[in-house]
Structures are given as structure tokens and as C-alpha cells.
Design a binder for these strands. Structure first.
Lengths: 232, 232
DNA sequence: CGCACGTTTGATGGACATCAAGGATTGTGG
DNA sequence: CCACAATCCTTGATGTCCATCAAACGTGCG
């Protein structure tokens, strides 16, 4: 892939907002391409954070396993999202494993090289803080959810969040454009696949969502979900 | 307070690590002092983030109220911690309210001025990212706890975390050096004060903690708490 | 004193995990 | 094209952790 194409990929990325052409070119030239086939991990939780990435195409699920072996889904990532950058800045091992849900391509930079680039182009750091701050807010709101809301509300909130981040509008409603098993949803909402299944079944029957027909879930009545999510 | 004293306060702050004297002096001169008496808030959740702060003395509890009026404790802050900085970077309203648990003093900077300083002294941005990354990790681990562990384990983990952040070693054990109501602990662990009370009562009787004698809780057998916290 | 506030402790119930078993869908090899 | 695994999903029965409801108890303070 040539530099120009890469610049085109980097331009709309939040992390690189308000950088001039020279900066983008420098970044593009320093980047290494990193192709990850569907189902594989970009790296493993616990690995040393030698490289940071920006996702160019595809979708990634960020998993974390607890000391006791339980799995929780931290978040989903799409094109333009940073992957592993925070760990690089902190010089700490990666705290989670990013698993490709589709064939993915990421651009990566070595830790040292990226630090140089960041020093040379200050807006990167500002953007990084803003991006990381966004994650904090999301985590805090999830913490609030798990702490104070019941399962049904959490599932609704999670579906809405996914729809916001990656939803595609169709005539039937909003479609979540990747496979999403009950197990996945359970790990996102801190519950079991059984409860998720029961809840979705009920919503299916009420016509709120369509989770049985295709492998991609469709939200048919977003306003109902909002209602459920907000109903203390 | 003169500039030199301020520089002394700023020097050990993580956010300003590896800054030279000139930078620290510039920061110290630009800072505004902000005294907050015990029990009052530094600012209110929802306020516009015009200033960011670094806590110089005292302890602060960071509260967030949900849309439904429930209160949850995000975290506790001590000397050297950033307060409201992330909101400033993001140009968003403050997402939480910091309440002084003791008489506090913070140094604050206006958003615009701080941005200038950050551009002039790049290490600040790097340190900020590292600090914010640390918060992310803490939030993720709390999310994991709330999602996968039971109340008793969460209370144990919370006490240990508080002891780590602010504990004082005494001959009787590790003391948590500020008042900590059952309600506070409940909001930190996502449970009710009733359950906290029951749990602490049990631990009191087993001699694991001493929560009844003084107003400051004392952990008498930290290893037992570690055991309880880790016991899946 | 008497009121306010935090705490303790008991009784009850409900939300949800767990246990259990069967059904649907997809892919694979004969 | 069918048999068969292998997954994933659904649905029922049971159990339990913990929230909720309720009431009494200490303790400090105006």
C-alpha cells in the first residue's frame, strides 16, 4: 500500500485530527501494516506493548480474562479506533486481547518511533487524551449500569451503544453489522447467556428486536429499547 | 503562597514528571489557589469545565449521580491527583462532583492557559495520558469486580484498594485515615449499606477488621482480606 | 432531654444464576 | 443427499444471594 493511500486512511482518524499533510505523511511512512484474519488476535493480553495500532478496516472485540479465568468483553472497536496505544504510553503489558471479528487491517508504530512523532506533532497528544477520556466516560457509565441497573436495562443499553457505534440503518430498523452471540452479549452485560436468551426471546415476541431470523441482530423499535434502558 | 512553595508542591506530581525548573515555575505562576473546606464540593457535576486542578493537600471523594438519582462513588483522590483535567481536555462538562473529605487545597489552571503550557512542555501530555491510562485500568478492574464477584469479595477488594492508596500502618494493623460510612462503602461496592453492615459485623467478630471502636476503620488481618477478595 | 443520623439485625421476597435437557442450525464426510 | 458432530440457542425447574422492608439501638448535639 502506498503512502498516499495510508494518508487517506489516517486523515479521518480522531487521533490525528488537525494534523497537517507533513505530519500525516510522516506517520504514514513510519507505519507498519498488520493484517489480522477473522477470528485471530492482534496480540495477547500480557504481551509487552512494543507497538501501538490504529484500526484501518474491520471490527475487533476487546476481551479480558480475569485471574479466575472468566472472560469479559471490554468493548468493540471499529475503523479509526486506537488499539493498544494506552499500554504503549504507559510502558505496561497489554491489559486485554483484541480479537478480529472480521478480516482486519491495522497500521502500527513502534513505541519509540511513535513517541518521537508525538513530540514532533503536539496535537496527537491532545487528541489521544480526548480519546482516552472518552473511554473513561464509557467505562464509568458501564460501571454505573452494572452497579445500579438490572439485566434487562443493561442489555438494552448495550444494544443501543453498539447500534450507536456501528449500527447500519435498514428499512427494518437498525442492524448491528456483525455476528453477536448470546454469550458475547452476556459477557458485555455481566450476566449469563441464559438470561440474555430469555430476554431477547421476549423482545423478539414483542417485535422490539429481530434476533432469530438472521445472524445479524436488528433493532426494530429503538425507542422501545431506550424506554427499557431508561426505566429505573 | 509564593512561587517556590508551589513549585515544591508540583514537583512530585506525576502529571509534571520530568519537567525542568522553568516549566514548573511557569506552571506555578499560572496556577490559582483553590481552598475547599471539608464537606464542600470543588465544583458540580454538569458544570462547564473551565478549570482543571491538581490536588495539593487533602482527600476528595468523586461522586456521580445517575439519571435516576442514585449516587455512586467513582474513586477517591489524594495529593498529587488530577481533578477535572480530563473534562477540560475534552471540552465537556464535568462528569462528576469532587467532595472534600478533609480541608483541601488545589492548584487550578484555566483551560486555555493550560493548553498553552501543555503545548510548550510536551512531557505534560505524555504524563497525562499515562495517568488517564491508569484510571482506565482501575475502572476496568472495578468493572470486572462488579461483574463477576460477590459482595463480600468486592468489599474486601475495595478496602484493600483504599488501604493501598491511603492506608497508614499502625501497631493494630492498617488504618484507613478518613471517615468512611457504611453508605460510602456501599456506593463504592455497588451494594446497600445493610449488606455492608452485616459483612463488617461478621469481620469484626472474626477479628479481621475493627470498624466499631473508632471512626477510622482498621484492617487487622490484611492477608485474610486478600484471601476473601481472591476467593472465587 | 429529644431529635437526627448512622448503624445493627431480623424477616421476607425477588431477580437472576445455576442445573438440566432438549431443539435448531451449520458444516463435514461418506 | 443423508448421517453425524459440533455449536449455539431455548426453555423449564430449582436454588441462593442479596435487596428490600421493618424496627430497634446507639451516639452526639442543639
Amino acid at each position: 500500500m502506498d503512502t498516499e493511500t495510508r494518508v487517506g486512511l489516517l486523515k479521518p482518524v480522531g487521533l490525528f485530527r488537525s494534523l497537517n499533510g507533513a505530519a500525516l505523511t510522516a506517520l504514514a511512512e513510519a507505519a507498519r501494516e498488520h493484517v489480522v484474519p477473522r477470528g485471530e488476535a492482534m496480540f495477547q493480553q500480557g504481551d509487552e506493548a512494543t507497538h501501538g495500532y490504529v484500526l484501518a478496516w474491520g471490527r475487533v472485540r476487546l476481551d479480558q480474562v480475569t485471574a479466575e479465568g472468566q472472560n469479559i468483553v471490554i468493548r468493540h472497536l471499529g475503523p479509526g479506533d486506537m488499539v493498544g496505544m494506552v499500554a504503549v504510553f504507559r510502558r505496561m503489558p497489554f491489559p486485554a486481547t483484541p480479537v478480529a471479528l472480521e478480516d482486519c487491517m491495522a497500521l502500527g508504530w513502534g513505541a519509540g518511533r511513535f513517541a518521537e512523532l508525538m513530540a514532533a506533532y503536539p496535537p496527537i497528544a491532545q487528541n489521544a487524551i480526548a480519546a482516552v477520556g472518552g473511554r473513561i466516560e464509557e467505562l464509568q457509565s458501564r460501571l454505573q449500569e452494572v452497579a445500579t441497573q438490572r439485566v434487562e436495562q443493561r442489555i438494552a443499553a448495550t444494544l443501543l451503544r453498539l447500534a450507536n457505534q456501528a449500527g447500519r440503518k435498514t428499512d427494518a430498523g437498525v442492524e448491528i453489522p456483525f455476528a453477536l452471540s448470546r454469550q458475547d452479549l452476556a459477557e458485555m452485560t455481566a450476566t449469563t447467556l441464559h438470561t440474555v436468551s430469555r430476554t431477547l426471546s421476549a423482545w423478539d415476541q414483542e417485535g422490539v428486536v429481530d434476533s432469530r431470523r438472521s445472524s445479524h441482530l436488528v433493532i426494530r423499535q429503538p425507542h422501545r429499547l431506550v424506554e427499557i434502558a431508561g426505566h429505573a
